[in-house]
């Protein structure tokens, strides 16, 4: 992990998905570091600095995870003043309208349904990284590339 590279922090409990995401990110031309945590609790630890992970430019959050799930983690993130502006993309299998509405209410930056094709996954990851790392200017307090 190179300190000056932007970091995308993935919270994903499913090893299959972690593998697919890693493969998809490998095919992404945008240069960034990737870090995975397995649940919401570990995500919050990482963000609070309990574990030595530098501040990410983007959090990609699965919703259904053991212990602290995505919704709870999102709620917690948005209540922390230093994390209030951190972009959090919810990335989940759920296409339930209730989930979508709820997540935006909790402060999600975006809600993306996991595609069921690898090609689509690659395209999605490309779009996400491009938008949040290249298009959007990091807010003060967020680490810059």
């Amino acid at each position: 992990m190179t300190p000056d590279k932007p970091l995308i922090l993935f919270a994903e409990d499913d090893p299959d998905d972690r593998m697919l995401l890693e493969e998809a990110c490998a095919e992404d031309p945008t240069d960034y570091d990737v870090h995975f945590v397995e649940d919401g609790e570990k995500l919050l630890d990482a963000l609070h600095g309990a574990r030595p992970v530098r501040r990410p430019r983007l959090v990609v959050l699965d919703l259904n995870m053991p212990r602290v799930d995505g919704r709870e983690a999102l709620t917690e993130i948005r209540t922390q003043p230093h994390l209030a502006t951190l972009p959090v993309v919810v990335f989940t299998t759920s296409n339930s309208p209730a989930d979508i509405v709820r997540c935006y209410e909790l402060g999600a930056s975006s809600f993306i349904i996991k595609p069921s094709s690898f090609q689509d996954l690659v395209a999605t990851i490309r779009a996400i990284s491009h938008y949040w790392l290249r298009v959007v200017e990091p807010l003060p307090g967020d680490s810059k590339a």
Binding site: N64, T93, N95, S116
Partner: peptide, 10 residues
């Protein structure tokens, strides 16, 4: 919407 679709998606 979630649990059934996840393995299917895999």
């Amino acid at each position: 919407s979630h649990d059934l679709q996840e393995p299917l998606r895999k």
